[in-house]
Design a protein around this nucleic acid. Structure first.
Length: 271
DNA sequence: AGTGCGGCCTGTCCGC
DNA sequence: TGCGGACAGGCCGCAC
């Protein structure tokens, strides 16, 4: 399931294939994703030159003079570059054909992803306008997280996963960062000291950076743009390890549902 | 304003 | 072996 490292990896991988290329055709086989793919995407993207490929939170932004394609991979979405005429596989919903003879192909079994089109500044789009800071940029720091948490009674894990607080920290990396920081996922966000928040920020940045370096986590069905799976999953310390010994202290890792998400933690190391 | 939950959707896994 | 059902998961949008 694509988290921020996967989207970053996708962005970096796609960029050299797309930059400066012109879109010669847009073919939509299945329009019904999280939201229907608007017809305006087909009509306005076709013929356009791709000016930039960037990421904001887990959204991929492909910009042209006419507007910007805003895409989210949801749970199971992936982009890959294929040659024109390559056989269409199950769940290959969209083809964006380029003048290079390559096709940017979107595949999404669970269809929680989206492809949207905006003519104006994508950062002002409803979905992007009120997002929190990027986790790996300078405005995400201990002071910020501490201040934002004042008065919050919610558990720190859902707090950390709230995109209005900080973007790009999904279920896997929230569990991992909290374990590294020694903070119990159920601890109220407003009851964590500044020093521990500073530690937490550092661990969030560590775990995300490491995952980006490794090329993104693959749990089930994420495939990088070149078709090679990422390999960060092997270094997860708690996620998916219910009942297995904590790699730090040996106590069995607990799995509990928190905010409708399964959470993994060590009851001894995390307080 | 903050919090919690329903719903979207399919592949995988488990038990019978 | 085949089948049904539970489960997972990002995140919007709604209700309180």
């Amino acid at each position: 399931m694509p988290e921020l490292p996967e989207v970053e990896t996708t962005c970096r991988g796609l960029s050299p294939h797309l930059l400066g290329r012109r879109v010669t055709a847009v073919s939509v086989r299945k329009r019904q994703l999280r939201w229907p793919i608007p017809r305006s995407l087909d009509t306005h993207l076709t013929g356009q030159e791709i000016l930039s490929v960037t990421r904001r939170a887990k959204y991929l932004l492909i910009a042209t003079h006419a507007g910007t394609l805003i895409s989210h991979l949801g749970m199971s979405g992936s982009y890959r570059m294929v040659r024109t005429g390559q056989p269409v596989l199950k769940h290959d919903h969209v083809d964006i054909t380029l003048d290079s003879g390559w096709v940017l192909r979107y595949n999404d079994p669970r269809r929680f992803g989206c492809l949207l089109w905006t003519k104006s500044d994508p950062l002002q789009h409803k979905l992007l306008a009120s997002l929190g800071p990027e986790p790996l940029e300078a405005d995400f720091h201990g002071d910020y997280l501490y201040r934002t948490a004042r008065g919050r009674k919610a558990s720190v894990k859902p707090f950390l996963m709230d995109a209005h607080v900080v973007v790009g920290v999904g279920n896997i990396y929230a569990s991992e960062a909290l374990h590294r920081a020694g903070i119990h996922p159920r601890r109220p966000a407003g009851r964590i000291s500044l020093a521990r928040m500073q530690g937490l920020v550092q661990k969030v940045q560590d775990v995300l950076s490491e995952a980006i370096t490794a090329g993104g986590t693959t749990l089930r069905d994420f495939v990088r743009e070149d078709g090679q799976p990422g390999y960060f999953a092997q270094s997860l310390l708690v996620y998916g390890r219910a009942g297995l010994p904590c790699r730090n202290c040996g106590a069995p890792i607990r799995q509990e549902t928190l905010g409708q998400r399964s959470s993994f933690f060590c009851p001894v190391c995390q307080r």
